[in-house]
Amino acid sequence: METLIELSQKMPKTELHLHIEGTFEPEQMFAIAQRNKVSLKYNTVEELKAAYQFTNLQDFLDLYYQGMSVLLHEVDFYDLTMAYLKKVHSENVVHVEIFFDPQGHLSRGVSFETQIKGIYNALKDAETQWGMTSKLIMSFLRHLSEESAFETLELAKPYLNWIDAVGLDSSEVGHPPEKFLNVFEASKKLGLKVTAHAGEEGPPDYVWQAIEQIGVDRIDHGNRALEDDKLINEIKQRNLTLTVCPLSNLKLCVVDDMKDHPIKRMLALNLHATVNSDDPAYFGGYMNDNYQSLIKNTKITKEELFQLAKNGILGSWMADQQKEHHLKELNTLFA
């Protein structure tokens, strides 16, 4: 009989919560920095790797934005995206929905066109080569103003046929979803889906705001929603998917020990929890690593493993026909 870890590796997976800038492996960051003659604070790959040890969200974000600084040309965005896609293709990820942070690059003088062309071309090449499907989510940085988000949305308009949704990320505490109410409203009118990081470090109230004021189609993280029974019921009633990131939660001390990760409780409550890697280069692992950690530490069962994979397919924004195809594969494997 196959072990659960083997099953988790073989099963078709979707990744619904992934920041492309968070897939920057130290070796690639160093190589692109040298190619573009950008100086990093670190003299060797080893020094850079040592910096990937941090204790909170802000320490991580400081390094994350420094890593961004080496991305200058279309080919850099292409190479970064393609390296991630190759990696997850090898792990049987069949569909990805990735975030990118245009404001973090625009502030450095890198045009919107340069960014999106590099990322989009890699996504299309992955579809041609392996049949991997994708959606692209443009994220607004919540520590910046809503005015800045509106300026970014304006720049995105010529590329709306390449963008499927908008998100909200960066430092959560002190930057509630309601701060971006108007720009989300404008995004919806353009036909874009909306999602927001809520309830990672921020309180349950931020999840309420994301649901009631923003009207999100999905919740990124959502861990702290479990502190509010009424909120749990609201999420269930609205049939909202939670894009949970186990290793990220551990690395950023959202949970102190993987044994205590709330994903089993989410499933027991019939919440549509999914497994994702968030920023895998920084947080200790890609999709298979996240599943393996859950299997080893939380003792999830075969039924729970199946449910997580199924939730990932159903909670994605891919076409119904594709969902049916992958569900059939999943059912066959687990049968």
Rank of each mutant, 00 (worst) to 15 (best):
residue 42 Y to M: 13
residue 94 V to G: 01
residue 115 Q to F: 15
residue 123 L to Y: 08
residue 134 S to P: 03
residue 59 D to Y: 10
residue 174 G to N: 06
residue 72 L to C: 11
residue 224 R to I: 08
residue 140 F to T: 00
residue 302 K to P: 14
residue 22 G to L: 06
residue 312 G to T: 01
residue 169 D to I: 05
residue 324 E to V: 13
residue 264 K to I: 12
residue 74 E to G: 07
residue 147 E to K: 13
residue 12 P to K: 03
residue 299 K to Q: 05
residue 287 M to E: 00
residue 72 L to H: 08
residue 308 L to W: 08
residue 327 L to A: 11
residue 147 E to N: 08
residue 29 M to E: 06
residue 157 K to G: 11
residue 149 A to D: 03
residue 129 Q to T: 06
residue 53 Q to N: 11
residue 208 W to E: 00
residue 321 Q to P: 02
residue 27 E to Q: 10
residue 209 Q to P: 02
residue 172 E to W: 12
residue 125 D to S: 07
residue 81 T to P: 04
residue 255 V to H: 04
residue 41 K to G: 14
residue 270 N to M: 09
residue 301 T to C: 13
residue 236 K to D: 11
residue 264 K to G: 11
residue 275 V to S: 02
residue 63 L to W: 07
residue 330 L to Y: 01
residue 255 V to E: 01
residue 112 F to D: 04
residue 240 L to H: 00
residue 53 Q to F: 15
residue 73 H to T: 06
residue 33 A to V: 11
residue 159 Y to G: 09
residue 93 V to F: 15
residue 56 N to I: 11
residue 276 N to T: 04
residue 222 G to L: 12
residue 251 K to C: 05
residue 64 Y to Q: 03
residue 130 W to P: 00
residue 298 T to G: 09
residue 306 F to Y: 12
residue 229 D to S: 11
residue 196 A to F: 10
residue 139 S to R: 01
residue 71 L to Y: 08
residue 85 L to A: 02
residue 152 T to N: 03
residue 51 A to P: 14
residue 133 T to R: 01
residue 278 D to H: 05
residue 331 N to M: 07
residue 159 Y to F: 15
residue 335 A to W: 05
residue 96 V to Y: 01
residue 211 I to R: 00
residue 83 A to R: 04
residue 125 D to R: 02
residue 328 K to F: 15
residue 285 G to P: 02
residue 157 K to T: 14
residue 14 T to A: 12
residue 181 L to F: 15
residue 111 S to D: 08
residue 309 A to D: 00
residue 83 A to N: 04
residue 175 H to N: 13
residue 191 G to L: 13
residue 319 A to V: 13
residue 130 W to M: 01
residue 263 I to C: 06
residue 140 F to N: 00
residue 203 P to Q: 05
residue 32 I to N: 05
residue 248 S to N: 03
residue 14 T to H: 09
residue 206 Y to Q: 00
residue 15 E to K: 02
residue 181 L to Q: 04
residue 162 W to R: 03
residue 290 N to I: 10
residue 140 F to V: 03
residue 41 K to T: 11
residue 24 F to Q: 01
residue 175 H to T: 10
residue 178 E to S: 08
residue 271 L to Y: 07
residue 160 L to V: 14
residue 287 M to R: 04
residue 44 T to G: 14
residue 11 M to C: 11
residue 97 E to H: 03
residue 300 I to H: 01
residue 285 G to D: 02
residue 60 F to P: 13
residue 36 N to R: 10
residue 49 K to F: 06
residue 107 S to L: 13
residue 140 F to G: 00
residue 259 K to N: 07
residue 322 Q to C: 09
residue 270 N to W: 09
residue 53 Q to T: 12
residue 159 Y to W: 15
residue 230 K to Y: 06
residue 2 E to G: 05
residue 331 N to Q: 04
residue 328 K to R: 08
residue 129 Q to Y: 09
residue 223 N to F: 15
residue 176 P to I: 09
residue 225 A to D: 00
residue 31 A to V: 07
residue 199 G to K: 01
residue 82 M to K: 05
residue 322 Q to V: 10
residue 212 E to Y: 15
residue 42 Y to G: 04
residue 192 L to N: 04
residue 74 E to N: 08
residue 207 V to R: 00
residue 177 P to S: 13
